[in-house]
């Protein structure tokens, strides 16, 4: 990961204004981060991660869609009526037996929110942002995800221009399930890559 990767696209003026107010008010102790995040999270379901789960489930049952998704995810999700309002590119990365993908934004909290909703508290936290790059296996373990030693872990750093959506592996035992039932197995965390998709015997959170 030694390549020189800069977040060259400027954050929008609006986003900078909000970040400025938020950081100053938090520093002054006038608002607490946990309370703020709890409130934001309360509305998280308004935009997703149901959209992302529908995308993943469709990719599991429709090979043509899957091919288009892997080639150009922004265009593929547009087929389902989802788009990135800021015009950023969406890239789908697929988990296999050989490769496990996990997404971070080391700079701030760039996140594919048109498909996943608002980012969870931990995604925006400094420890996650710095540690998942240095020691991804240890971080994944804390999320209860143990990978075989042969599995390569790829960490994708989101930017203002490019957002990543992890396509988790279709769970064993889900062969006869409908697309809708499959979508319920696709948790937000599995599309960030810190967990795997739920087993058909588990309830979606």
């Amino acid at each position: 990961m030694g390549h020189n990767h800069k977040h060259s696209a400027p954050l929008s003026d609006t986003v900078l204004r909000v970040k400025s107010l938020e950081s100053l008010l938090v520093e002054k102790g006038l608002v607490d981060t946990a309370g703020l995040d709890a409130l934001v999270e309360r509305y998280e379901h308004q935009v997703g991660p149901r959209n992302g789960a529908a995308v993943v489930a469709k990719s599991w049952v429709d090979p043509g869609f899957k091919e288009r998704l892997m080639k150009d995810a922004s265009a593929a999700i547009a087929e389902l009526g989802y788009s990135g309002a800021q015009g950023e590119e969406l890239v789908a990365v697929e988990n296999t037996d050989a490769v496990h993908n996990v997404v971070v934004c080391t700079l701030c909290s760039c996140y594919p929110w048109p498909v996943l909703g608002l980012p969870p508290v931990w995604y925006k936290s400094a420890p996650y942002r710095s540690r998942v790059v240095r020691e991804p296996r240890a971080v994944l373990k804390e999320f209860g995800t143990e990978l075989s030693a042969d599995t390569e872990v790829r960490v994708w750093d989101s930017t203002a221009e490019t957002r990543y959506l992890v396509i988790p592996q279709r769970p064993v035992g889900s062969e006869n399930m409908s697309e809708e039932a499959l979508a319920a197995l696709v948790s937000r965390d599995s599309m960030i890559g810190v967990t795997v998709a739920l087993n058909p015997t588990e309830e979606a959170a």
Partner: peptide, 20 residues
Amino acid sequence: EGPVFDEPWQAQAFALTVKL
């Protein structure tokens, strides 16, 4: 179901106001 946001910054600005 409640307030609707198009983008995260909207929810953040909203939440800051509520907290203050």
